[in-house]
Simulated scan of single mutants.
Amino acid sequence: MQVVFKIVRQNQNSLPRVESYPLDVESSATILDCLNQIKWQQDGTLAFRKNCRNTICGSCSMRINGRSALACKENVGSEIARFSASSAAAPNQIPEITIAPMGNMPVIKDLVVDMQGFWANLKAVDPYVSTAARQVPEREFLQTPAERSQLDQTGNCIMCGACYSECNAREVNPEFVGPHALAKAYRMVADSRDDRTAARLEKYNQGTEGVWGCTRCYFCNSVCPMEVAPMDQIGKIKNEILARKDGQTGRSIRHRKVLIDLVKQGGWIDERQFGLQVVGNNLKDLKGLMSLVPLGLRMLSHGKLPAKFEPSEGAKQVRSLIESVQAFQTESKRL
């Protein structure tokens, strides 16, 4: 079949350009097969990373038709079908596949990006098991099969960078360590051999560089080729933090706890109470309270500040659902 590959190319510190390469390939050919064919037969200057060709090393991650994926995993036929379903291409038009470098990382050349920041952020979460405080001579730190199974999902991460490339939080907040780092961080939190769980949770709870910097866009989950589900792991760290902290610890934790409490009470959020309890810390944070005054005045002037709160009709059902989920989570931890 005839396919045109449109590849975004650029040199370091230069503007990108798009170059087109027509190919005659089988629909079963992987994107990496096609890039190899272009490099070997049409343009030897094309630069991209590759290694195992078997979805193991993560080297060939790049943006394929707008989403980060492994070039060795995606094939021409499925990619054309996926893209055609969401576009208005003419029936007889030669299909096109656009290849671009990953996002959130500076380009070195063509599809090769500088991953130093990616690795530095991974290092920042200390992704190594610590047993320094529990040294027992001539004895291993054994785990039960159940304890080991807690590490399976995060252990599948191949550090391809796809989640980091698509992370909205990382794009707007350079302090956020990224979903890859926090997925690895949860592996340490869940590891029964580690003796630094409390210290780790304190670290991951700080500001917006840790778990509270996540915007919950789910892009990291949608592009992960190994089904690590980084955002789910971030949520698990948040739950661990919330289980150990009370509402006075910080605004991020109050935000989560107050939101759940208010929805349980009324079925939806009483915004008046939400601001006072989260930002004003139940009238204990004067600076926070003062920051609410301009917003409150604007709401009053536009008739947007309700005099009373009306619970939703399904408040009892909502409360029952939340309590059921909380009971399930408590029981799961026991098991």
Results as ranks from 00 to 15, higher is better:
M1A: 14
Q2W: 15
Q2M: 15
V4W: 06
I7N: 02
R9Q: 09
R9P: 04
N11V: 04
N13V: 03
E19H: 04
S20N: 10
Y21N: 08
V25S: 01
A29R: 13
I31P: 00
Q37S: 12
I38Y: 07
I38A: 01
K39V: 09
Q42P: 01
D43Q: 13
G44W: 06
A47W: 11
R49C: 07
R49T: 03
K50T: 10
K50G: 02
C52A: 02
C52D: 09
C52F: 04
R53Q: 11
R53W: 07
S59K: 09
S61N: 13
R63T: 06
I64S: 06
G66D: 10
A69P: 00
A69W: 00
L70I: 04
C72N: 02
K73H: 12
E74K: 05
V76C: 05
E79G: 02
F83D: 05
A88T: 09
A90W: 06
A90L: 11
P91V: 15
N92W: 12
Q93F: 13
P95Y: 14
I97H: 01
T98L: 15
P101V: 08
G103T: 12
N104H: 01
N104P: 00
P106G: 07
K109C: 13
V112I: 08
M115Q: 10
M115F: 13
A120K: 06
A124V: 03
D126W: 04
P127H: 03
Y128V: 15
Y128E: 11
S130H: 07
A132L: 12
R134C: 08
V136Q: 14
P137I: 13
E140R: 10
D152K: 10
G155T: 08
C157N: 05
C160M: 05
G161H: 04
A169F: 03
E171D: 12
V172M: 14
V172H: 05
N173Q: 13
V177K: 03
L182S: 01
Y186F: 15
R187A: 00
M188G: 02
M188V: 04
A190V: 09
S192N: 11
R193Y: 07
R196K: 12
A199G: 11
A199R: 09
Y204I: 00
W212F: 07
W212Y: 11
T215K: 08
C217W: 01
C217K: 06
N221T: 05
V223Q: 03
M226Q: 10
M226R: 14
A229R: 08
D232K: 10
D232M: 12
Q233A: 07
G235I: 00
L242N: 04
G247C: 13
G250E: 03
R251K: 09
I253C: 07
H255G: 00
R256A: 15
Q265K: 14
G267A: 06
Q273D: 10
Q273M: 13
Q277F: 05
N282M: 12
L283S: 14
G288F: 07
L289K: 08
M290G: 10
L300E: 02
H302C: 15
E310G: 02
S312W: 07
A315C: 07
Q317W: 08
V318S: 03
V318A: 00
R319G: 07
S320D: 08
A327T: 13
T330G: 15
E331V: 12
